[in-house]
Write a protein that binds this DNA or RNA. Structure first.
Lengths: 379, 379
DNA sequence: ACTAATGTTGAATCTAAAT
DNA sequence: CATTTAGATTCAACATTAG
């Protein structure tokens, strides 16, 4: 508490009370604790607030195992209005803490991000980008009633419309992206394996731990070494861990003692990188998956076109939805290839051919054509 | 106007006034014209509302009157409120038009999508997915002060939270995507080249023409052939062109005569795909139910026969009434399958097998045999 | 000590028809 | 309306166990 009392006044020299709260985790409600910190003292805020998931009953996988849902108390709100009020309050407190050229990041899903984004705009922040985190390994949709929810959204905003001198390390981002501008869609795996913190009972320490790679790109793009990064929903401290490793200062606010304990131990074990190493952080792209529909969409295969195998034993028709059919039996290129041969599996890409002026052309070549085009535009 | 007057009443037989407005472009303000169409007459709405918010000196109100440069808080708040009111009004009119199991798509960028999404939720729609359109060839960021804005966001929502029977062609999407669930991030090139409509002066006919491939996936995923698709911001008619090609009906609403002229010519030139090409892979849910007793009645399974699971761990006896039993415990194929495994649920069709000369045969194959016979006699 | 097979899990607004 | 029953539904990463 002594620490906090010192921080409640803004008249102190920022350097003088630095040691009081810098690189610490403050326990308590984030709104009250943010109000106790000096105005204009933070360079960048990263916030991962509750998503207000509004889950119904239990969900089971096809093998009947139960999905471990996020049903924690901190994610329960009575109504949209309640959630909006909460969001407005913490965003207002956060804005007060930002330096004039500070920026804020907020991550969310479709459950909450539209409300967050609207309130961010209403409070006078200025949107710079919305960033899509494409999950390399998202949870499937188990009931087949929607598209697989394979991404989350981050909002990046400056404190004011006229704040033009915010930090954006354009060249570092471009260099890290094969000398192409860093796009607004980022591909990262979810946090799992050794990176995922475990409680003593072996279960996950926090239900929604974010991957360090995501935070690393956030901080490398929008902060400079020595900057102060605040995370008002600190959880198990991914923001603090990455900030420390990258030579940035952090401040965390968290209510739950168990999360704080885990976060502190995690951060204590972090060894900061030397400045030289900080210069470069690469990103790799995997060979992109190309759905068969892309060939239709790109005009390389027309709906209604005929596909045959290499020896012309079977002929199938391409349908508008990207399936192919023999008679009334429609399936994917793989399933139908397996079906006609009486096999369990078949690589449709190498099995099916398209008649062209220069003879039969395996559709795998058309897929390569798509990949070449994608590589050209840096997708 | 005569057309519209007929459409203002909901008492008419839907078939009778179909020809009046179906597959036409209605000229006028979308809110007024939507209010003149019969309630509950639309299966799917695709909306590409104006994004032109906060674009420096080029800010326009929804009525297209120009707003002076935004340079203070009051003015900015005023413009958000204006946009919100407009958004609420057209979404309300749109919701009235939807059938109970209808769904709506709205596309936008970070300038407007958060406001749209919040209002969609506030009006009682239920979010199903947010879909990210990743642009294969987005415009670069010229000043190097932000990430390249490489995506747009679509919201997909049902009319009500409890509307569970909306159309989602899960199996077709999966088959078209290499037999993997279709994700929420879609990759398409922007509309350019030959697909991009040109005005007589050679310049683009519409500033934000969407690619047909994007609309094709939207309609193939969430509509059935013959469905009615409304686009209240029709522009140069991408929605109508794709709907016609895919055997769906369209209704377009558009204010600008120049756009309507271009759209009508474009749509007139579209040749619909034949029905065969439009058929999609069948979903299991849509197949007729077959009671287990039908297998006994058809002689495919004899009363007293033994069923086992694939690994022979459990054996049950078939009873004449269509239940199966282990000892004295008789139940349906599903209940008993769940019971022996200690689970809440089980698909008995894929769990139980019958011993046959060529080894174990899953009873789901026998069900397929019944379905094939039913199809033969047109049942 | 390897490889192969099997099991576990992740921010999830996750069914449909018959009674 | 609510309740019951049928029966449809998963991908990638990682960990663990079996061979």
């Amino acid at each position: 508490m002594a620490k906090l009392r010192a921080a409640t006044t803004t008249r102190l020299d920022p350097q003088a009370d630095r040691a009081e709260w810098l690189d610490t985790i403050i326990r308590g409600d984030c709104i009250a604790k943010m109000e106790a910190l000096p105005a204009g003292s933070i360079d960048v805020i990263f916030a991962d607030p509750p998503y207000n998931l509004q889950l119904g009953g239990d969900l089971h996988r096809p093998d009947q195992s139960k999905v471990d849902a996020v049903d924690d108390d901190w994610d329960r709100f009575e109504s949209f209005a309640t959630y909006d009020n909460f969001t407005r309050a913490w965003l207002l407190a956060a804005r007060r803490l930002l330096k004039p050229n500070g920026t804020i990041w907020v991550i969310g899903s479709y459950h909450n991000i539209f409300r967050v984004g609207s309130i961010v705009q209403d409070l006078g922040f200025w949107l710079l980008n919305d960033i899509v985190w494409r999950k390399a390994n998202p949870m499937p949709n188990f009931r087949g009633r929607r598209f697989q929810n394979a991404h989350e959204t981050m909002i990046w905003a400056s404190r004011d419309q006229n704040a033009k001198a915010y930090t954006f390390n354009y060249d570092a981002m471009k260099a890290a992206n094969d000398d192409l501008q860093m796009r607004s869609d980022w591909l990262f795996p979810i946090c799992s394996g050794g990176e995922r913190l475990k409680a003593e009972d072996g279960r996950k320490a926090h239900p929604t731990q974010k991957p360090e790679a995501l935070l690393a790109r956030v901080l490398l793009s929008s902060t400079k070494p020595g900057d102060v990064v605040l995370d008002p929903f600190f959880g198990t401290g991914t923001t603090g861990a990455v900030a420390k490793r990258l030579g940035r200062h952090f401040v965390g606010i968290e209510r739950e003692e168990a999360y704080i304990t885990a976060a502190q131990a995690r951060i204590d074990a972090i060894e900061p990188l030397d400045l030289h190493t900080l210069q470069t952080v690469g990103s790799k792209r995997a060979e992109p998956r190309v759905p068969f529909t892309s060939l239709i969409e790109a005009g390389l295969v027309a709906p209604g076109a005929e596909l045959t195998d290499s020896r012309g034993r079977w002929t199938a028709n391409v349908r508008a939805d990207g399936t192919i059919a023999i008679g009334d039996h429609a399936a994917s290129i793989h399933r139908l290839g397996a079906k006609v041969q009486g096999l369990d599996a078949c690589n449709g890409w190498t099995f099916w051919h398209l008649r062209s002026p220069k003879g039969l052309q395996v559709i795998d070549e058309l897929r390569q054509e798509i990949r070449d085009r994608m590589a050209l535009v840096g997708a």
